[in-house]
């Protein structure tokens, strides 16, 4: 409507003069389009109003339900209140838990298949020390391992960080058990109690082990450990 209703000559506010175009041009401009019709004034279908009311209701309900407290706290009303989820104690599976920890913590370096990366991160598959010495892996996880390692397939000279502060005894027992029973290894599991003992016995060791010192420490603590919970190998 706006377009047609307006018929002032364009003496417009910005001082623009309207030039007269040829009759042909003027007509071609108008003939190619139709005027903008004026808006109607319908009310809209009833269901639209239903949607509006329901939306408003839901919006206010939602605000009431989740606004929580007006404070500087984040994460309010996110976790289900305690007791809501039944504390069903799933039976603890050392190997399954170990696999999860391995994927999360060790896999970045030793890779999913335990093969490591030749010359950089040692392979754990069939690694003699992992298989033969149950405590070796525990010690290297607790304090880390550095310096030259001469292994069958390659020589390594990297740094493995310590995970003793990040993983608890149960985690370490789980992941060590997982390594010792996966990638073709078939040594036995070890129990969390043993990790606890080792942690206590090596409490005064600081810094990472090297190939030599780790042997010394194993020799030092071995006699104090209660007998290994697994059947002797070989």
């Amino acid at each position: 409507m706006a377009e047609n209703s307006e018929n002032k000559k364009n003496e417009n506010a910005f001082g623009d003069e309207e030039k007269n175009d040829s009759i042909f041009d003027i007509h071609s401009a108008s003939l190619r389009e139709q005027p903008l019709p004026e808006e109607g004034n319908e009310r809209g279908p009833w269901w639209m109003y239903v949607i509006i009311v329901l939306t408003l209701a839901f919006g206010f309900f939602y605000m009431g339900r989740y606004l929580g407290e007006v404070s500087d706290r984040a994460h309010v009303l996110f976790t289900a209140p305690p007791g809501a989820e039944a504390v069903e104690e799933v039976e603890f599976d050392l190997i399954a838990e170990g696999q999860r920890i391995y994927t999360r913590v060790c896999q970045a370096c030793h890779q999913a298949n335990g093969e490591g990366i030749s010359g950089v991160f040692p392979t754990l598959a069939g690694a003699e020390w992992v298989v033969d010495k149950p405590d070796y892996t525990v010690l290297s996880i607790l304090n880390g391992l550095r310096g030259e390692l001469v292994r069958e397939r390659a020589t390594y000279d990297g740094v493995m960080p310590q995970f003793g502060s990040q993983l608890d005894d149960q985690d370490i027992a789980a992941v060590v058990s997982y390594i010792r029973t996966s990638f073709g290894n078939d040594a036995g599991e070890i129990q969390p109690e043993r990790v606890t003992q080792i942690r206590e016995l090596t409490a005064d060791k600081s810094g990472a082990y090297t190939a030599e010192t780790i042997e010394e420490w194993i020799a030092r603590i071995e006699p104090d450990l209660e007998e290994s919970p697994e059947p002797a190998e070989d």
Binding site: R104, C109, I117, M160, Q162
Partner: peptide, 22 residues
């Protein structure tokens, strides 16, 4: 920083992620 504390690992990974993460 706590999940992956190894400087060496980060260096290799930044230089070439596929070297450590197939």
């Amino acid at each position: 920083g706590s999940r992956q504390p190894s400087v060496d690992w980060h260096m290799i990974h930044l230089y070439q992620p596929r070297a450590v993460s197939e």
